[in-house]
Computed example of a mutant assay.
Amino acid sequence: MDSDAALAILSALSHPTRLEAFRLLLRHEPEGLATGALVEASGLSQSTFSSHLAVMAKAGLVRSAKQGRQNIQRADIAALKSLMLFLATDCCQGHPELCQPLVAELTSCC
C-alpha cells in the first residue's frame, strides 16, 4: 500500500456514518449485508447513504456483489489488513519488539 491509498482509506473512514457502516460490515463478514439493511441502520435516505457507500467503494473498503435482486456489500478485509500493516510496519524505530507482535498477528490473520 502506498501513502495515497492509505490516505484515501483514512479519509473515507473519517466520517462517522462511513466508519459505523464499515464496522457494521465487518461484523457481518463473510456473508455481507444487503444495501437496504445498511441504509436502514444508518437512518439516512437511500440517496444520501449512496454517496457514503460510493466514497468507501472508491477507497477500496467495500465490495458489492449482486445476489438475486439485492446488492450485497462486504468489507474488504484485505484493504483493512494492508492499511494496518502500512501503519505498523515502520514503527518503533530502534525498538521493533514493540510493534512486532502486532505485525505478526496481522500477517497471520484473515
Rank of each mutant, 00 (worst) to 15 (best):
Met1Pro: 05
Asp4Phe: 12
Asp4Arg: 13
Asp4Cys: 08
Ala5Ser: 12
Leu7Pro: 00
Ala8Arg: 12
Ala8Tyr: 01
Leu10Thr: 11
Ser11Thr: 15
His15Thr: 10
His15Cys: 04
Pro16Lys: 11
Arg18Gly: 00
Ala21Leu: 00
Phe22Met: 06
Leu24Trp: 10
Leu26Ala: 08
Glu29Gly: 07
Glu29Arg: 11
Gly32Trp: 02
Gly32Tyr: 04
Leu33Asp: 02
Leu33Trp: 00
Leu33Gln: 03
Ala34Thr: 01
Thr35Cys: 11
Gly36Asp: 10
Ala37Glu: 15
Ala37His: 12
Val39Cys: 11
Ala41Leu: 13
Ser42Val: 05
Gly43His: 03
Leu44Met: 08
Leu44Pro: 00
Ser45Phe: 06
Thr48Ala: 14
Thr48Gln: 10
Thr48Phe: 06
Phe49Thr: 04
Phe49Cys: 08
Phe49Ala: 02
Ser64Gln: 09
Lys66Arg: 15
Gln67Asp: 09
Gln67Lys: 07
Asn71Lys: 13
Asn71Tyr: 11
Arg74Ile: 03
Ala75Asp: 03
Ile77His: 01
Ala78Tyr: 10
Lys81Leu: 12
Leu85Ile: 12
Leu87Thr: 04
Asp90Lys: 08
Cys92Lys: 01
Cys92Gly: 06
Gln93Ile: 08
Gln93Met: 05
Gln93Thr: 09
Gly94Lys: 09
Gly94His: 12
His95Pro: 06
Glu97Phe: 03
Glu97Gly: 04
Cys99Arg: 12
Gln100Gly: 05
Pro101Ser: 04
Leu102Thr: 15
Glu105Phe: 11
Leu106Met: 14
Ser108Trp: 07
